[in-house]
Amino acid sequence: MVVLLILYEWPKMGQHQKKEKTAFVTITAMGWLLAILLLFFPDLQGPTQMIEQLFKPLGKMLEKN
């Protein structure tokens, strides 16, 4: 997948677009790393749980008893 992505997009970027290239590589790497991590640890705590921890006190107001 990642290889395909790079093959498709890389030739389209001009030589001078250094910033774009960096952003492209970083985001692709993030996705790739995340995919591999999730392959090995499927129960990793996600962003939803993080936000849930943050907003728990407020969320209790809407909890149906």
């Binding site: 952003a23 985001i27 996705g31 790739w32 995340l34």
Partner: peptide, 17 residues
């Protein structure tokens, strides 16, 4: 250039994380 990388990231996130 960053459309497809984000698509990949969104897919990974949406599937499981």
């Amino acid at each position: 250039p960053i459309v497809f990388p984000f698509g990949f990231l969104l897919t990974v996130l949406g599937c499981q994380w």
